[in-house]
Amino acid sequence: MTAVTANANSLSWYEASARQRIDALVDAGSFAEFIGPELREISPHLAIFDLPEQFDDGIVIGRGRLDGAPVLVAAQEGRFMGGAFGEVHGAKLTGLLRAARALEQDVLILFDTGGVRLQEANAGELAIAEIMRAVIEARRAGVNVIGLIGGRAGCYGGGSLIAGTCSRLIVSEQGRLSVSGPEVIETNKGIEEFDSRDRALVWRTMGGKHRYLIGGADTFVDDEALAFREAAINALKAGRRCDVTVLEAEQTRLERRLQRFGAAEDAVEIWERLGIDQPTEIPGLPTGAFLRAAANRENADDAR
């Protein structure tokens, strides 16, 4: 077997494009794309709105190797239409997950999405539902589905529900995970409910550190492609069931979270209840110090 090498250069996951993330994540030179841009499988719906198209419709899918093991990979491009799910974009991920089940190959989903693409909202919403079902069917066939969250667009809306079906989630501080985005809450419920321009509020309510602390994500990494790669290699070693035992454990875990933190008005209160000495310092901590402070976090081991 040939030596497995990563593409060694330092690369900010947040700043990188979907294609750069894949290149940095999988073993060097191992990626082969399915339905590549040369096939021009563009969205048939954007022209109705006179909007520009992208040849891959904002998602790159294919196969590669991770530390030698064959994996299927999907990466969303958050800068094109906010990485949102439309008909073509969604169908590419649905097809990949169905293939994963048939081939019994693990899947890495590199989320970078605002949710459903409004210009094709019904098709996007149904794609989310189809993808969630395909994830669960793949997991029940013994396949790991790992989600990686750290892109510009975060992981919002239907994307966050898909993330919730994954067997493991890897997140960086920049990775926001939430159903309703800050602007959506403010627009619907008023600025008193959520001030979307208060960036510190956004990060501590929806950001990677908070999600890791409450068990909403399993691994916290630096905003570095190599850190995501190492975490993905480790995540593939973890369990892979999705049966009644796992969901019962998740039920207990999520009930406990409501009981423990349901009355909190702000993330800092939750961090205090987790026994963190200086909870207001959490947003500023570098990764090493943060992980030490997070020693008593809630976790989702075998309960996702």
Binding site: S17, R19, P37, E38, P52, E53, Q54, F55, R79, F80
Partner: peptide, 14 residues
Amino acid sequence: AQAIVGVVASGNLE
């Protein structure tokens, strides 16, 4: 055989 660069976003192109 082929290459692709860039992204379709405001002020950008593929």
